[in-house]
Simulated scan of single mutants.
Amino acid sequence: MYRAGGTVTGERDAQPGVSRVRRLGTHLPPVARAPGEARAFVADALRSWHVPEDKACDIVLAASELVTNAFEHGSGGIALRMRFTGDCLLLEVRDSDPGDPVLHRPGPRSVRGRGLALIQALSSAWGHRRGGDGKWVWAEFQLA
């Protein structure tokens, strides 16, 4: 179960008798351990939502990459949100860098710059939008 120091917010289904969480969010500190905390948080949520293991692995990797980018390029706290509708999961990460994310095409010997290419390969869609003094980078995953 996720036990890191971030704050967790959640929303439960409104239907009687249904108690599965459909939206979750957390705030992560801008420190090197943030990607690991994000992986644990997302993996726990996906397990509780009974997301198939193969899809869950892709989403956990995407969360790690997005939070790594937020840590490396932002200067403040990092927010992570997930919304699950049953056949689609939306993952969003906020950082304080107002600049647009850049999809790189690194060469085979390059050791960096593959994060957004991984997001593009793993997700059904991805993008970003401005929010306050930073931006939200999002990735959508079809689960059906």
Rank of each mutant, 00 (worst) to 15 (best):
R105T: 13
V21M: 14
S19T: 09
R94E: 07
N69Y: 11
A32P: 12
D13Y: 03
R129S: 08
A4G: 14
R12M: 15
L90T: 06
V102N: 03
L122V: 06
H50N: 05
V31I: 08
Y2L: 06
T68K: 11
A56H: 01
P16T: 07
P35A: 00
F84K: 13
A139D: 07
G131N: 05
L90N: 03
V93K: 04
R105E: 15
P98H: 05
V137I: 07
V42G: 02
S64G: 13
R3C: 05
D54W: 00
V102W: 03
A40N: 05
G107P: 05
R12T: 15
L61S: 01
L90W: 11
T26G: 02
L24P: 10
I59P: 09
D97R: 15
K55C: 06
R23S: 12
L143D: 12
Q142H: 09
R83E: 14
E11N: 13
L122H: 07
S110M: 04
G5C: 04
L143I: 08
R47V: 14
L116G: 04
G77N: 14
P29C: 03
S110R: 04
R94F: 12
R12P: 12
I78W: 13
G131F: 08
D44I: 05
A43K: 09
V8A: 12
P108H: 06
A139L: 02
R12N: 11
G134Y: 05
P106H: 00
G6N: 06
S96M: 13
V93W: 03
T7W: 04
P106S: 02
H128D: 04
R20S: 10
V42A: 03
F41T: 01
L103K: 05
R47K: 10
M1H: 09
L61Q: 00
L118M: 09
F41L: 06
I78K: 06
A45C: 08
E72Y: 15
S64I: 01
E65F: 07
P29R: 10
R81P: 08
L122M: 08
A32D: 10
V93N: 11
P16Q: 11
R129I: 08
D97T: 12
R20G: 10
V93T: 08
E140I: 06
A38P: 07
V31R: 14
T68M: 09
A14F: 14
H27Q: 06
R83D: 13
W126I: 11
R20P: 08
A14T: 15
D54G: 02
A40L: 04
G107D: 05
A63E: 09
L116N: 04
S110I: 01
V42M: 01
S48W: 01
V18R: 13
A117S: 07
V93P: 10
L90D: 09
V42P: 03
R23Y: 15
V51Y: 05
D54K: 00
P106T: 11
S110Y: 01
C88T: 15
D44W: 05
R22G: 15
G36M: 03
R33T: 10
G74W: 15
G107M: 01
W136K: 02
V102A: 08
Q120D: 13
E37V: 03
R109P: 05
R20C: 04
S124C: 11
A125W: 08
P35T: 02
F71V: 11
R47G: 10
A63Y: 05
A144E: 14
Q142C: 10
R130C: 09
S96P: 14
K55E: 09
A14Y: 14
S123C: 04
G107R: 03
